[in-house]
Design a protein around this nucleic acid. Structure first.
Lengths: 200, 200, 200, 200
DNA sequence: TATGAATGAGAATTCATTCAT
DNA sequence: CATGAATGAATTCTCATTCAT
């Protein structure tokens, strides 16, 4: 007796499915996965509890869709910047812009970032998805850097390091807010460091 | 109706409290906070379910103690290394050793690391604790680096950056295991980068 | 706010109502009443969920119609045999044939038989229907046996007993399949017993 | 993370487990399995909903225990009668007594009988249990009849037939209550028939 | 102090039935 | 008449916390 998940064809239904995902996205960000109950998702989406299970197999399935949105939102802006950037951009400018983009992403979803990452430990599917995302970004970024003239060895390893540095900075600058840290000064150090990472 | 949490004076009681914390530490690492039920903590600690609430206000309180242990275990080895290291150590050697130490820490508690960090979003107390830890390490490390002869400006900002790089590397090297990444080569890049961060 | 159940006049509608009953019949047989969900009935009938409630008051109402079909299918073949059988048939042959007929009925609806009977306990209407069916068969059979020359006293009581024996045998022979029972030999015993029940 | 079902050692606990089974027994009899909700079982047993799942894996597990009680209650009195009866009892008396015993059993659990039997169609475990019960009774009864001097062939087949006749009679006499049937007269016919089944 | 059985509020999920289109 | 998405009450089961012993 298989459970059939509605495949929304009508625009109205698509809207509804997306409203549910959006509501879950917000609530997971605010209260975590375990701190969010399905009926609240439904309520915020403006639908009944029942219909949630018309669109999703279970609560975890909703999480999975949220994860996909998160990944899309995370990856897209950086990728777009990479593809749009001129080949003779300076490394300083390149990283400065990437940090800006990354920060704006973090602004809206840094909570979710950690929540999803911590779930990745318990859930193999989520972990897979993150690994895949990282690979995608790393490979693309490495290729693009190469086109831009970065010819250093072990480009992928360096991209990984760079990604981490950028994300950590973006994260810190938004959240941690240690009062003894000057985040603007720190940003300059970060950029200088990144340049030295890829420079000769 | 005041709820009095036992302040264990007897050694037996101290042992018991610590056994509970240890059991929780392990189970939270293995299954996450929400994947761990209190009775299992009690069982692993070899005590009754009820007595857990003699030593802790509630489940979250246990988490808090686990966090403290985690922080102690995380901070101590690095701090110890710093205080024991000779003043004329090279930056390469210094960072190489710190990475080694950090990796051995992550080896046993990387799961918990993320679990705790994701809970920090929902729980202000936990967040405070992490901020405090970071400050402590940053300040101490900066001071020690200064003694060693690192005289660069904005030392604390740089220490922050360095901490992040080291932790990310340790984390990646243990978990992510992308097959297209050579983690030993990456390590060399990381060290070089750290040296360039603090070097002139 | 009267809920009006459609009285289908159009042939198309009659078909549809019957398709629903048929689908329910099949699904109740396969999965029981509680194991069948209305939307599956609709799906198998090739109609929408909603229209089911155009033809039936509620799920129980469908069951009631299924019951009627079941009763018709159960009673008809035996009754037909009785009316068609020659007056000078031997009791052996008579019962042998009735067993054959009963078995072919059970073949297709023995599951439903039990499912309906167990629901009869909870639902008075269903119980009534069964009592009525039994009465109908008993009276008709008794009369026919009389015509055939069976003149024993308390014919109706004996018919009841006979009905039970035949149904149990048919049921056992199809389902129970104890490996220590020889069902063909058993059948001979049953027939002999039935003959002795009505014989002098 | 296995779910541990309490194995009650204390008498108090045993009482409680049995109270739950008893409550379920009654409620299943009254309203069927699907018509009974777990919280009602708890309520009637005078316990909390939660503790029910301390003693039973799930609702179906309770059913299984009820089934075992039912089977014990059903089998025991007949078996006891068989073992206690004198070897030179007449078949008339033997069957008369068995009918009496069977009737008293049905008096209290005829509803449950059908409810369980209908669940047996959907649940293989329950079906197994019933087959096993039938085999047990059949074999024991056949053996005992043999000791009493019944030497007819195919004894087990005949015992099966007899069991069915007796149970149907007991059931009818209690429930059906067709007004055109004289159940006392019917009883005499049943006994005569049973005697003729085993007699020479 | 210690036990572990007991509590009961709360969470996920289902499904008969309704209703907007 | 027909559709099938939507509703929401009801149900099973869990687990942090309490309490009788």
């Amino acid at each position: 007796m298989e459970k059939s998940i509605r495949q929304p064809k009508q625009q109205r239904s698509i809207d509804k499915k997306e409203r549910i995902i959006k509501a879950a996205y917000e609530l997971f960000s605010e209260n975590g996965y375990h701190g969010t109950v399905t009926s609240d998702i439904a309520k915020r989406a403006g639908v009944s509890t029942g219909i949630v299970y018309g669109y999703f197999a279970d609560k975890r399935d909703i999480l999975f869709y949220v994860l996909k949105i998160y990944i899309r939102e995370t990856a897209t802006p950086v990728m777009e910047y990479f593809t749009s950037v001129s080949k003779d951009v300076s490394l300083e400018e390149l990283f400065d812009n990437i940090i800006t983009v990354t920060q704006s992403i973090h602004q809206k979803s840094a909570n979710l970032h950690n929540i999803l990452h911590s779930l990745a430990f318990v859930n193999e599917d989520i972990n897979e998805e993150f690994l895949h995302l990282e690979k995608h970004i790393t490979v693309s970024a490495a290729q693009r850097l190469n086109e831009i003239g970065v010819t250093t060895e072990r480009l992928e390893e360096k991209v990984h390091i760079a990604m981490n540095i950028i994300q950590d900075y973006a994260h810190e600058a938004i959240y941690d807010r240690h009062d003894y840290i000057d985040y603007d000064a720190m940003r300059k150090d970060v950029i200088k460091l990144l340049v030295s990472l890829f420079g000769k």
